[in-house]
Amino acid sequence: MGIIKLQNIRTFSFHGCLEEEAKIGSDYRVDLEIKTDLRKSALSDDLNDTVDYVLLNRIVVEEMAIRSKLLEHVANRIIVRIFKEVASVSRINLSVSKLNPPIGGDVEAVTIEMEEYRS
């Protein structure tokens, strides 16, 4: 088995419960870790034998572009879509961070983290 990580995927998105967040938007950071079998690709040196991280990045960016009120909701969409489109993924650990959240304090980021296993 093996792990593929995409770290610090940056997007400008419009998530949040406040109307202002839907209009103004904010910076986000996504960190994705997937577990998959890397033994075949380690021997073959063939992209078809592994999980294409370009596809993983595209899924994250496309789902982050769809507005959600809650970070948990957008994270769940990303997880569901990865499991649907990439059969070889057995586990996903995903964190979504809203940078400089509008919560009335000096807070660098608010982050949710979800971990799911293929059932």
Rank of each mutant, 00 (worst) to 15 (best):
M1P: 08
I3S: 04
K5V: 08
I9D: 05
T11L: 02
F12H: 14
G16A: 03
G16Q: 04
G16H: 00
E19S: 14
E20Y: 02
E20L: 06
E21C: 05
E21P: 01
K23R: 13
K23P: 06
K23N: 11
I24S: 04
I24E: 08
G25C: 04
G25I: 03
G25D: 05
G25H: 06
G25F: 03
R29S: 15
D31M: 01
L32K: 11
L32V: 01
E33I: 09
E33W: 03
I34R: 08
I34F: 01
K35F: 00
T36Y: 06
T36F: 01
T36S: 12
D37Q: 01
L38G: 04
L38Q: 02
R39S: 15
R39Y: 10
S41H: 06
L43T: 15
S44P: 03
S44V: 09
D45V: 03
D46W: 00
D46P: 11
D46L: 09
D46H: 02
L47G: 08
L47E: 09
L47R: 04
L47V: 15
L47D: 02
L47A: 10
N48Y: 09
V54E: 14
V60M: 05
V60R: 03
V61G: 10
V61C: 09
V61L: 13
E62W: 07
M64V: 08
L71P: 12
E72G: 13
E72R: 00
E72P: 12
E72H: 11
V74M: 03
N76T: 11
R77A: 05
I78F: 08
I79C: 09
V80D: 14
R81S: 11
I82E: 02
F83T: 02
E85G: 00
V86K: 06
S88M: 00
S88K: 09
V89H: 06
I92M: 07
L94S: 09
S95K: 10
V96F: 07
V96Y: 12
L99S: 10
L99E: 15
L99F: 11
N100C: 00
P101D: 10
P102M: 08
I103Y: 04
I103T: 10
G104P: 14
G105A: 15
G105R: 09
G105I: 07
G105L: 09
D106F: 14
V107M: 11
T111H: 09
E116Q: 07
R118T: 10
R118E: 01
S119C: 03
